[in-house]
Amino acid sequence: MTAAASSLSDTLYKKLEAQILAGKLAPGARLPSQKDVAETENVSRTVVREAVARLAAQGLVVSRQGSGVYVAETAQYKPFQVTRDELAELADVIKLLEMRLALETEMAGLAAARRTTADIGAIREALFAMESAFDDPMVAARADSDFHLAIARATQNHYYERLIEFLGVRLVPPRNMYLRDESEDAHRAYAAKVRAEHEDLVDAIIRMDVPRARDAARHHMQESLSRHSQLSAIALLRPGAQSGD
């Protein structure tokens, strides 16, 4: 498909998606034929096929052999997603951290109230793995996400577990994102600070101190948010930042 056709297909996809989500094309309704859509929108059938294929991939429409294409019964339910591409920009990382601030504060409180001995073992194991992976920021980030997943499991609420498992490493931007130009001493100082924040949180959960666990989680997330916000401010001051370079 040419670039022009791809652009037309994207426009048509967004138009049909908006009509479906707004209920103008109701669940169970049959879409007009590809021929009719092509004529109405003044595009080729190839453009229509591509747009419909994207709708099907998103679960918004279903094809019925010999009958046509229909709006899916669950079409107006749009699942929550955070894609890797969405977190390529620092501003989007900051938005995710803002969401985590509330999420992890309450999650820590529930973990402190409900944790088991096995949960404590899993949390400590993840914390040890994080400290052992200092030399590899990406491995450390995965261990960090495992740490938060272990806390989610300690809530005994599988919805927390599923959400944290879904977010995975998106939860923890690797430190080389914001320390890429810094010395090894700066990396070690950062790792030590984060370790102290984590250890305070773990201690509160072990002691089943709900208010302190909430405070420790909130402090940890606020510190992370502050670090990324400062980096964002510095980036805007760099030459060429206003032009998008």
Results as ranks from 00 to 15, higher is better:
156 Q>W: 10
64 R>W: 04
74 T>N: 14
38 A>C: 01
175 R>V: 06
95 K>N: 14
177 M>I: 13
111 A>G: 07
105 T>Q: 14
39 E>H: 04
75 A>G: 06
163 L>S: 09
106 E>F: 15
34 Q>L: 00
180 R>N: 14
178 Y>R: 09
210 V>T: 11
200 D>Y: 10
160 Y>F: 13
98 E>T: 09
209 D>F: 04
113 A>I: 10
180 R>G: 10
69 V>C: 06
240 G>P: 06
52 V>S: 05
94 I>D: 09
92 D>K: 14
133 A>F: 00
104 E>H: 09
184 E>F: 07
46 T>E: 02
44 S>N: 00
40 T>K: 14
141 A>D: 03
127 L>P: 01
79 P>K: 05
168 G>I: 00
141 A>G: 02
18 A>N: 11
215 D>Y: 11
151 I>T: 07
83 T>I: 09
53 A>E: 01
146 D>M: 05
157 N>Q: 10
2 T>P: 10
101 L>N: 11
71 V>S: 06
139 V>D: 07
100 R>F: 12
16 L>N: 02
67 S>H: 12
76 Q>A: 01
202 V>H: 04
122 A>S: 12
36 D>W: 03
68 G>E: 00
186 A>N: 06
133 A>V: 00
158 H>E: 15
124 R>H: 12
1 M>N: 08
18 A>G: 07
144 D>Q: 02
236 L>E: 15
50 E>H: 08
203 D>Y: 10
241 A>M: 09
200 D>F: 11
80 F>N: 02
99 M>T: 14
9 S>H: 03
10 D>L: 15
157 N>S: 05
136 D>L: 03
145 S>T: 08
82 V>E: 03
117 T>L: 15
113 A>F: 07
195 R>N: 10
239 P>L: 03
27 P>A: 00
132 S>Q: 14
198 H>W: 08
185 D>R: 11
94 I>V: 14
67 S>I: 13
57 A>E: 02
203 D>Q: 15
70 Y>H: 04
217 A>V: 03
227 R>M: 13
234 I>T: 14
15 K>I: 08
55 L>N: 03
41 E>A: 13
226 S>H: 15
35 K>Q: 12
29 A>H: 04
89 E>V: 13
88 A>G: 12
